[in-house]
Write a protein that binds this DNA or RNA. Structure first.
Lengths: 239, 239
DNA sequence: TCTAGAAATGTACACCGTAAACGACTTGAG
DNA sequence: CTCAAGTCGTTTACGGTGTACATTTCTAGA
């Protein structure tokens, strides 16, 4: 039976054996990749550019990360390491879950590209740490593990969906290289035309009645509170 | 002042002027692109492959779609056209919003690649139709347009977040080319090792206590109901 | 009928992920 | 101490990508 390399990256991060001293490692590679993604967007991340910044050839990276797909998983988990989970669980599950949601949102704003990775299930250490912390928040409420997952996953699913919509608009501007004013100037005439032509009463109401420049933080908190109200009702029903 | 082409795709879809009769149009191109994405994943969609399927050169497509980025926007809006909105609004806002959520989820399952587009804001006709239908559901409850958006966007943000996590696992399997059993066989040893080594009490509880093969539909409905409970509380407070 | 301008093509460029072959180096087994 | 085993990093190469540009072909309006 061949001793094949394990298919899970996290089991494949080898330690130094024989051979030349290493001048690279997956942590440093991941850090450079993240810096590149933060600065120029995830599409600008390429093996050649990462290698260039580290004064190496592109192929050298493959000794450490296996494939670009692996690298994205390393990037995602590394970024999860930035979550601040101190003082969690605090004993107040609603406050804790709110904090986790805010942390996830903060993370997405700091690294807008993580939305593009589709939140694949990762077995990385930081994902584990996060899951443990999250479930600890909703433990001791008299719920089984499935119901605990319901609470946590629902709050986080909402958060990710919210942030994605938020970032979709930010990224649309970044791609076109326009600021908000420029973006509005470009789309404005078309929207005016829509209002004239089409039968879009709610678009009209949105433009006329809606708050002009809502603070995204306030909107997020308002909607998160509604979700948490729903979760609270579930907890009260059992606990 | 130069008569520059409008930056919004939807205002740039020209009609026949002089010149050779058209043998392509953006609707057909978009349809082929969607078929390709459905069959082989979004990464398999390339201008050359689309053109090949239509017996044309790659560059011919650029007469009709501007750029690949534009094409993705056309794809997204086209797919929104598959939403079944008949009988909406029905007068029962909670039932309507539930239906919209299920429709969105169904759409993501039929076209798993739409998650990768980050739900950018689109000005396409089907996105408009969907927004109008959605806001109509939550009209007449005594709420302002901002609160109406809160209800709708919260339910849909949850839905998108849920589906993304769901599809993340599906896509992870598709990429590795393994079925669920094979996937488990690959990750199993590593998870066993994690349980031995690390201090991961909740991972252990998940493996031991959690329902073995939960029906994703049931899980979705259960969590969606919690979210809607939260929204209902908000409506009752005002309405 | 003539011609401006649109449709579609072919070529070309810069870039991408990564397979394969290779030399340089370190180390563990004898 | 010796030396084969095995790792690290490089070079080269292949097949793919999006799309800029120049060119040819065709048709609708003047």
């Amino acid at each position: 039976m061949a001793d094949e390399p394990p298919p899970v990256i996290w089991a494949r991060l080898s330690s130094q054996g024989r051979g030349p001293a290493r001048t690279l490692n997956h942590v440093a590679i991941t850090a450079v990749a993240i810096a590149l993604a933060d600065a120029d967007g995830v599409d600008a991340v390429s093996m050649r550019k990462i290698a260039g910044r580290m004064d190496h050839s592109a192929m050298a990276l493959y000794r450490h990360v296996g494939s670009k797909d692996d690298l994205t998983e390393l990037m995602y988990d590394a970024v999860l390491g930035e979550l601040d989970l101190t003082g969690i669980p605090s004993g107040n599950w609603r406050a804790d879950v709110s904090r986790l949601a805010r942390e996830i949102r903060r993370l997405h704003h700091a690294h807008p590209w993580i939305a593009r990775f589709g939140h694949r299930p990762t077995l990385g250490p930081h994902a584990q740490r996060f899951r443990e912390a999250g479930l600890a928040c909703v433990d001791g409420l008299g719920l089984g593990i499935d119901a605990m997952m319901d609470l946590l996953s629902t709050a986080l699913a909402f958060t990710r969906g919210f942030v994605e919509q938020e970032l979709g608009e930010v990224e649309a501007q970044r791609r076109t290289g326009l600021d908000f004013a420029g973006y509005q100037r470009q789309t404005g005439p078309f929207i005016a035309q829509l209002l004239d032509e089409g039968d879009l009463p709610y678009l009209k109401r949105l433009i006329i009645e809606a708050e002009d420049f809502p603070d995204p933080h306030v909107v997020f908190e308002r909607r998160l509170a509604m979700v948490l109200d729903g979760l609270t009702a579930r907890v009260d029903r059992t606990g």
